[in-house]
Design a protein around this nucleic acid. Sequence first.
DNA 1: CTTGACCCTGTAGTCACTACAGGGTTTAGC
DNA 2: GCTAAACCCTGTAGTGACTACAGGGTCAAG
Lengths: 138, 138
Amino acid sequence: MQQKLTIGMLSKQSDVKVETIRYYERSGLLPIPTRSASGYRYYDGEDVKRLRFIRRGRSLGFGLEEIRSLLQLADQPQQPCHEADQLVQAHLAEVDAKIRDLQAIRNVLEQLAGCQSQTAAHCRLLEALEERVCCSTR
Amino acid sequence: MQQKLTIGMLSKQSDVKVETIRYYERSGLLPIPTRSASGYRYYDGEDVKRLRFIRRGRSLGFGLEEIRSLLQLADQPQQPCHEADQLVQAHLAEVDAKIRDLQAIRNVLEQLAGCQSQTAAHCRLLEALEERVCCSTR
DNA sequence: CTTGACCCTGTAGTCACTACAGGGTTTAGC
DNA sequence: GCTAAACCCTGTAGTGACTACAGGGTCAAG
Ligand SMILES: [Zn+2]
Ligand SMILES: [Zn+2]
Ligand SMILES: [Zn+2]
Ligand SMILES: [Zn+2]
């Protein structure tokens, strides 16, 4: 019952690009696949699952090394999941910090948007970058 | 009145690392500096200003190519600042999009935090990544 | 039998740095 | 005058997570 998927089919089923799949193989995140006589990679349903796992982890912003740990853990259901929970906590904190940084940037950019100057001499952005105290500073 | 700063002094005054200053020079963002007899780079107050300009641009999330345009514009005060204003608008939209993505991630991570499972078999994160419909799905 | 879609390997490019390795120079203290 | 620390130089390679070729081989439809 093992369906033989080529890398292109796996790509479509997992929504991961062909080049990226080969990259994950090189990185050791995917098992070395069987090959056809002519050297084509063959995959099955397990590979689809594993790749979708990776894709979802990536879309939550986990790095490949973190995902490597999570894959290992997923293969050992009776192990404690402490490590996974720690990754979630740490990653949540990271994401929060990034959001705060971006909010701060956003606030500055909003002030700089809608410049009325027309010329560079008193452009809001340029005055800000030059730390020039001038018309746009208020 | 040209103070002669070494790269280390420039680094301190601009809050940009020595290696990064050399990288910016290679990238053409900083003018080629004069040198001492023994080959040490010498900088002056103009370089401090330029480097601080770059640093502030980076801290707002602009890329080096964008900063290159902005530096050029800052050198020609009578030019229209349309391009700078467009960069602000485009960058603001980008930042907003990133914040939205991160908020979405944050919401998912918050659901996954505080896993009570103890074992990997029913860990909230792993169930989510495996797209498994189980206890943590509700 | 040819065309086009697919597959292969290997390498290099992206971005903005960062980290050496392997040297030379300057400065302060003794 | 000597030595050690702190500074400076060039050039190269590494980071993360891909992405983009170049230069080939394979396969299925018409
Ligand atoms: Zn303007
Ligand atoms: Zn002004
Ligand atoms: Zn858990
Ligand atoms: Zn469960």
